[in-house]
């Protein structure tokens, strides 16, 4: 992949993310905050963006959305890498969602 292609793909991902985020926030803000895992301030900012602003922000060489979980526990649960007492896919996924839903409460 050439550098131009990379930038184009990043732009595309950014655009999709921002547009999705915007429609989620406009539909139901509280729910969107949970789904996106962002603060209310950022949500207000994103919701207020005009299409022109979105396309401006989206073009650049940096991705705007970033990884939600930065710890091994959740990551291992999601990928099911480590063998544990529980090795049912649905159950580990459920475990991971409990951990992820509780994450924000700590970081605030």
């Amino acid at each position: 992949m050439t550098d131009e292609q990379l930038t184009a793909e990043i732009r595309e991902a950014n655009l999709t993310y921002l547009m999705l985020a915007q429609s989620l926030i406009r539909k139901d803000k509280a729910e969107a905050l949970f789904r996106l895992g962002i603060s209310e301030e950022s949500a207000d900012l994103i919701a207020a963006l005009s299409p022109v602003q979105i396309s401006k922000i989206a073009s650049g060489n940096m991705l705007l959305c970033r990884f939600r979980m930065d710890d091994d526990v959740v990551w291992n649960l999601l990928t099911n890498h480590t063998t544990r007492k529980v090795d049912n896919d649905a159950t580990t996924k459920l475990h991971a969602s409990i951990l992820m839903a509780g994450r924000f409460a700590e970081s605030i």
């Binding site: 803000k29 509280a30 949970f34 924000f104």
Partner: peptide
């Protein structure tokens, strides 16, 4: 307990991030 914990985590998340 697992079901309730999932629900309660989501509930706490919602009440912490927005005034509902």
């Amino acid at each position: 307990n697992i079901h309730s914990s999932l629900f309660l985590n989501i509930y706490e998340h919602l009440t912490k991030v927005s005034a509902l």
